[in-house]
Nucleic acid binder design. Structure first.
Lengths: 222, 222
DNA sequence: TGTACATCAGTGAACGCGCGTTCACTGATGTAC
DNA sequence: TGTACATCAGTGAACGCGCGTTCACTGATGTAC
């Protein structure tokens, strides 16, 4: 059995189990027995459980960042210094997110993993993701800044995270929500459907009117 | 040491530790040693770790549902059959969410717990919450239905969950986001600030234009 | 008023179990001379 | 071409540890007669 085979089988099995039950709730024995691989192989190839978790993420995020950078390069060339509209930026991101895990049919898995990563309190994973993939997010939010010149800095920061919350929350809880939606409305939704529904909501959210001034600064302002 | 004391000390400590590190990552020994309580006391008073987790939630959700029902009663009386505007409904919900845990200064804890509950894959907790508190959510979404008569059923369902995602995601990851915001924009945000910022975003999201028809139904529609 | 019994919060120690990790080892393949 | 050695994927068994739960027990308080 060649190395690539064992390593790949571990990663394939681990990502599914992690997405289904979380990191702490998935033991190395769960993974290795389902992957039909020796228990010690995980520590042999990855060093530790923590490192395995990071490897699972890297397998999605490395190609994602590569393609996203490429797509942004293309956009910038196309717009040649002019401002890229917000809708185009969001569309590009959505397309990249959809494309990357397409070959493994596992956008759902990827989104659940992202959701888990964010809800992990101790945050070794969040730190890892920020360290390795923070730069592509910075580049994206720079472009969003240019596309929304009227939005105050802080407001844009918060709105980007509001939107991130919507997307990760919805797509990572997709199965549960889909069951309810199907039962109540007899409507089967695919991830593409959901992204179609998300688009106008996200755009409206980013373009919402500014909030009232905080109440304690009202006297000074009025 | 009276019962109320032990039970309360366990709950107080458990909710903080659960919120900080998650359910699986918090052991009964962590809880009981920090609460200065005998290890066996958890199983004596609650029966199991699972039941303790549910009790932690019940302590927030029971008063929340009670107050929220009361607030909705009041609104319905006030509007006397007329439609309650969406903004008012959202405002009422926000106010109730803010009021309930105020005495323990722990909205943050509550929101992190909710976020964890949603990201829990195995879902005994999600089932418990849906069983015990589903009805107040139904009542609320009925009122939202009346306030947004032009929104198709399924669209409203999804948008409510988009918005839920934003709120839970943002407030449950508040500490991490706050650190970044403070560092980058020198701005300290309170939960009340955040809700002020959320309001126009949520309203715009609910009122966003309808999405394009799904591409495979386009030929039939046009 | 006094005695016997029941109830119940709380305790200390132990139970068996599954966990991540380690270690000595095998066997196949490649490399040097 | 043959031999000695190095490298490396993979293995089987065991390690110690922390986990949730259980159990026999204590001691205080309440209740019945």
């Amino acid at each position: 059995m060649a190395q690539a085979d064992t390593v790949t089988r571990i990663l394939d099995t681990a990502e599914v189990l992690f997405a289904e039950r979380g990191f702490a709730e998935t033991s190395l024995r769960n993974i290795t027995s389902k992957a039909k691989v020796n228990l010690a192989a995980v520590n042999y190839h990855f060093g530790s459980k923590k490192a395995l978790i990071q490897a699972v993420f890297a397998r999605y995020l490395d190609p994602f960042t590569e393609r996203f950078h490429a797509a942004l390069d293309e956009l910038e060339a196309q717009y040649a210094g002019r401002v890229i509209p917000l809708e185009v930026l969001l569309e590009t991101m959505a397309k990249t997110v959809l494309d990357v895990p397409a070959e493994r049919n596992s956008l759902k898995v990827f989104m659940r993993l992202l959701g888990l990563a964010y809800s992990q309190a101790q945050g070794h994973l969040r730190r890892y993701i920020q360290e390795h993939y923070g730069s592509v997010f910075s580049r994206f939010s720079d472009l969003v800044r240019q596309a929304t010149p009227d939005l105050p800095e802080a407001e844009r920061f918060w709105r980007l995270h509001f939107v991130l919350g919507t997307v990760i929350f919805t797509l990572s809880g997709l199965d549960a929500l889909r069951d309810i939606a199907e039962k109540d409305y007899g409507e089967h939704v695919s991830v593409r459907d959901l992204i179609r529904r998300l688009r106008p909501v996200v755009v409206s959210a980013m373009n919402a009117p500014l909030p009232d001034a905080p109440s304690d600064s009202l006297p000074a302002a009025v």
